[in-house]
Design a protein around this nucleic acid. Sequence first.
RNA 1: GGCGCCGUCGCCAAGUGGUAAGGCAGAGGUCUGCAAAACCUCCAUCACCAGUUCGAAUCUGGUCGGCGCCUCCA
Length: 552
Amino acid sequence: MAIKINNVLTRKKEVFEPVEEGVVRMYICGVTVYGRCHVGHLRCYLSFDAIIRYLKYRGYDVTYVRNFTDIDDKIINRAKEITQGPEGSWRSLPAYESYDACQWSERLAEDEKILQRAKGQDRHLAEVVADHFIDVFRDEDFAPFELIPAQVEPRVSQHIPQVIALIESIIEKGFGYEVGGDVYFDVPAYHAASASYGKLSGRDYTQLVEGARVAPTDKKRFGADFALWKKSGEGEPAWSSPWGQGRPGWHIECSAMSLDKLGAPFDIHGGGKDLIFPHHENEIAQSEAGTEKKFCNYWMHNGFVTVDGVKMSKSLGNFISIKDALGIAPPEVWRLLVLSTHYAHPIDFSRTKAAQTASVACETVRGNIDIAYDRLEYFYETLRRADEIVAGEEVGEEAACMEEPRALELLGRFTEAMDDDFNTAKALAVLGDGMKLVNELCDLKAKQVKKLPGGRPSWIATLAKLTCDLREGFGALGLLRCDPAGALTACREFAARCSCVDVSAVEAKIAERERAREEKDWARSDALRDELVAMGIELRDSSTGTDWRVIR
RNA sequence: GGCGCCGUCGCCAAGUGGUAAGGCAGAGGUCUGCAAAACCUCCAUCACCAGUUCGAAUCUGGUCGGCGCCUCCA
């Protein structure tokens, strides 16, 4: 069985054949570090995290590179804004129109932090801005999600020689030209020689020019040409080059660093769909122009996160920051939610759409986050009850599993789903079936267990195998890696905090109800339960006691 | 204007030629002091029209609706 990948480059689903057998070299476009990340970024890195985990699960030795673009106009602009201070005219820019008081307060606090960090450092403020947001990315935004760390996280600022060498090679081959300190990639010349510009995005470069906005100061020969190197302006960060003081253009850094870390061709290049053009198209052109080798074999792009059907983006102001996301649900809930949809399809986070379209049913329509939250708890609860049954039991090696196809074929079906272009949605459905089976088995009475072929030892063996396989499958997606009891407590505490539930008051009422129940005072017991329901608490009585959870 | 994607049950969501996975909600049931949970059963012919085919949600053409890229963007 082989893994199949929907290759954006060929627009076909293809059998994955790495350059070197058993090894996967992949490059995922990282972020430009000029601000905080939002759920759109989260979706991208969670989707690719599951893909990387699965490739490892399938036995591949994965070399994964994810860059930080730490030189860019937006970073320089941010530095300029910080320099101007809170009274600067930048605050009236259109980009900030939608800012509310809360966002402003966060923004200014962040600027202050960056200024503090810059004190005593003899560096350009833009570099400090980049450092700051790299730290935010690693230590704040993404740390809770436990992504598989990239082997290398290259920064452009540390790869200027590689960038320059690649640009020189492009110029040497006749596909780049210098104009007054800027260097441009010559799209028409390259296309004339290779007939390949536009092969990823399916664009005809001659038609691009008509729609392209060419700024009056542009020195490029052709509208579709793009900057490989930019001459630095006054007070901007600059590096020495054969073309004078300047900095790399956007696109070239990913080519230079991926070629440096992975060589050409490497296996998989990924990123958001919005990067297909121009970013990835230009990466291919300049890399293949400079190296005369194929750049990358498989291109994968994740779908957008949308809000009310519209792409989530900073410029539209319709984004949920990762910081806010972590206040809505725990990291693992977000992971489950993201993986519930195929990586290439859009995910919509609107909570208003349902209310608009289904006026009758709006009260019963629940947010996807809440559903994912419940589902995660269901998974952990299922594992917990199975663990309790299996714990302390001798799982005899000789005890055969029950002839239960749903148990025996679980991982096979999981692998089949994932092999087909990493269909995490389907894979989760398969694993969900396994969870249902675990509950079914746990529900059996001792008498029924006795009657099973193989009896109790076989029942235990089956439960042990199932939970082990489920952990393996979910684990290959980065899910259910925690101890169930601990995870459930954390889930409940999180929900209690969100709903401002007074945990000690809840537990006091539960204790009181326990006493009423011991005295078989059902009226009192039920009254207490009603009070708890009014507090947003649902009870679950069992033979071992009363558990509770926050109603969502 | 150019290129491209999408439209599957009330909601979410798999499914690229062989007769519609899964989740939520809903109905009925088993279990339970009651309830919850868990489990069982039920619940769609795939925006529309016209073709290709023995056979189409899946292919082709058209219509309508939504979105994306072409400027920064995961």
